[in-house]
Design a protein around this nucleic acid. Structure first.
Lengths: 405, 405
DNA sequence: GCCGTTGTGTTAGGAAACCTACCGAATTGA
DNA sequence: TCAATTCGGTAGGTTTCCTAACACAACGGC
């Protein structure tokens, strides 16, 4: 039973709340005339008109007099300003480096993808700079326009220090170094975030997670990990390690690789090697690869189907663990293997239903390879909007002191 | 990007926020004079005085003129009203039935505990009625004074239907029936809640979870289950089944009893039976009981220590699962076995640190047998406060309509 | 093609919430 | 004892919202 907020409610708080509402309405609905805004926001016309004047004064809203381009009796239409800063998203993957930009309203302006291949930090940063420069020029923007930056990366990002731990997939990547370099380069402190968490945000905003209060994204690819959305918000955990389901101690708890149950990494091919001795007919030949196995399974190859069945069992264990602990409505499979959901989905569903009395829905991701980028852009947009709003609205009234009270 | 609230901000919203702040301040700090309240709330003296007058008018605040009983220059002291309704908490356990009451500010007024023993629903309800009646008379209160009721029970309580599923420990308990009976009896719709969730709330408010944003209570006793507090709030999950860690598929995933890893129920004695063949010296004799094993371990009996060590390993698996999925800062052991944390704590900590790169702190509960009741009372108090506040504050201004806008 | 209806945006007047400043009364402390 | 402090209260003013009324433009039925 603590106080909900530090400061008490004063009249200017009302203005702030209502200004935010007006901006939200404009960002959701696009250009509108004043009376329509008043109805959607729920305020009277005079008040709405005053709000709009204030927002126009600080440059957060644009007014257009379209001759009579627009409909009916409207004299002016209003829209959320666009050219007041951009957000930058960067995805540092194991095989690709991607960058994207969006305007202050979250509309994507550009996207750049560069293949990377075993490079050191110096080379990585050079590629990164090139990619960002291209993303900026494609968006007709400059370094100074960047309001916020979100970087997606494998590994656990510590909330306080920004340090990246248990990265694994990218050799000598260090969160502090990276943060400092970016910060120096762009004059903006970047926000580092675990890549799978960003996929979860992407699913929440633009994917299968829309409107779902509790769901998880289980990513099976180079590594194994999950992103959790609980009560409609990303759950990072105490040190940002939520969703590190690799550490659920199945099988021999002291095997550091959890090889008997890990469906990620080389899990699928290892499984095939192990099962090769069972003399089931197959057109598959060694060396097995993830792709060849999945393709054979799609063609109906008996041995490949058996391997996939086993893989599905392993995946189910992790789906079940997540759901047993947090009871999600939906689990979305993603990542290199998770994206091949067509052959995995049904066996996983069947198994999960046997394991749990309250099984979640299980689906394959509806987002493509740039899911991390989409999530990062989403997060960066929210940050930018908050920064710009604070900046502009405080510019109006920052001059009075209190004495008595 | 949706609107944060349905209605826009109007001046009366300020009043409501500030009224709540004043009440909060009084409930936290006890009786205060007006100037002190103004300082704590952060509002000016005239505004605070007006707020207090309003709250006194509707009976939410009491004004006392203590002659000069109280200190200094204060003419009046103000305190949150107490005699405006009570909250009722009921704990339906496997072996005990408990009831407790608190005033509107959460101050406990009475507590009653009754042993129950294999009874049918009819007998259970009779005992329940008797216990509640005693709790009420001990609190010098009447049925009509009850504002809200929270009932703790084993099993998963569905948010929407109130139905109880997978109860197990209590034979023919049915949430709908129970809710209906209570509702008819007291004229108040009771809120049913999983008992371990209530322990988590108790730890959050009065136990080791105070100030901890992310923690779990792992209850090991008749059954196995966990309560999760994430981001400072109880996490119930999509169907209220969050924390049902019994279903994490360790060992043979198709063993419905998960007997190879379950530390709860008869887990400890079973473990002892299994290990009896290992010829380790022991003063323990069959039949083993949970109590005799734990006592022997405390005395240093080698065999008993080995059994406890194994039990600790099993517990660690569940601690690790929870932490791998949601990354909690702290796991609190509770329940019949969990309360015997003295002998379990160190081996569990050691094991958990081997299993996880980010191990949580592990502690034994600091709350006694009435933890469920404490949590239920907490929840009921919050509900009562909200109900009474709504009732009283809407009594003032519920008479005007809008036309133009 | 005219004129009533409808909808937009503005002005005027007022209500509700907050604030600062000041003042008298009571207590405290030098 | 008397100055300083603190309390509760009043007066006057600001910010924010509201309803009501009105001018003006567009639409549509006749």
């Amino acid at each position: 039973m603590a106080l909900n907020s530090d400061s008490p409610a004063v009249p200017t708080l009302l203005r702030e709340i209502n200004e935010r509402r007006v901006l939200d309405v404009l960002r959701i609905n696009g250009a509108l005339h004043a009376a329509e805004i008043a109805r959607l926001v729920g305020l009277s016309k005079p008040t709405t008109a005053a709000l709009l004047r204030g927002l126009i004064d600080v440059g957060l809203v644009d007014e257009d007099r379209p001759g009579d381009l627009d409909s009916k009796r409207a004299r002016s239409v209003y829209s959320a300003a666009t050219k007041i800063g951009i957000s930058l998203a960067i995805d540092i993957g194991a095989r690709y480096l991607r960058a994207a930009t969006a305007d202050i309203n979250g509309v994507q302006l550009s996207e750049v993808s560069v293949a990377v291949d075993e490079m050191n930090l110096k080379q990585l940063l050079a590629s990164l700079n090139a990619a960002v420069d291209r993303a900026l020029s494609d968006a007709a923007s400059l370094h100074e326009d960047i309001v916020s930056i979100v970087i997606g990366t494998p590994g656990v990002v510590d909330k306080r220090t920004g340090q990246i731990a248990i990265a694994g997939t990218i050799g000598d990547l260090d969160g502090i170094q990276l943060g400092e370099v970016i910060s120096r380069e762009f004059g903006v402190e970047p926000h580092l975030e675990n890549d799978i968490n960003l996929v979860a945000i992407a699913e929440l905003e633009k994917g299968l997670g829309r409107g779902v209060l509790d769901f998880a994204v289980l990513s099976i690819g180079t590594g194994l990990g999950a992103g959790l959305v609980l009560n409609g918000k990303l759950h990072r955990g105490h040190r940002g390690a939520a969703g590190e389901v690799f550490y659920v101690p199945f099988g021999d708890p002291f095997d550091p690789h959890h090889s008997s149950t890990n469906p990620a990494g080389g899990g699928l091919t290892e499984l095939a090697e192990q099962l090769a001795s069972t003399s089931v007919a197959s057109e598959l030949k060694k060396p097995y690869t993830t792709v060849s196995i999945l393709d054979a399974a799609r063609r109906g190859d008996e041995f490949a189907r058996m391997v996939v069945e086993h893989e599905a069992e392993r995946i189910s264990l992790y789906v079940a663990s997540i759901s047993a602990v947090v009871d999600v409505e939906l689990v979305i499979l993603a990542g290199g293997i998770g994206r091949q959901a067509d052959v995995l989905l049904n066996p996983v569903r069947k198994m999960v239903e046997q394991l749990l009395p309250f099984p979640p829905r299980v689906e394959g991701t509806s987002l493509g390879e740039s899911a991390v980028l989409v999530g990062a852009l989403q997060l960066a947009t929210r940050k930018s909007q908050e920064i710009i709003f604070r900046e502009r609205s405080s510019a109006i009234d920052n001059d009075f002191v209190t004495v008595d009270r």
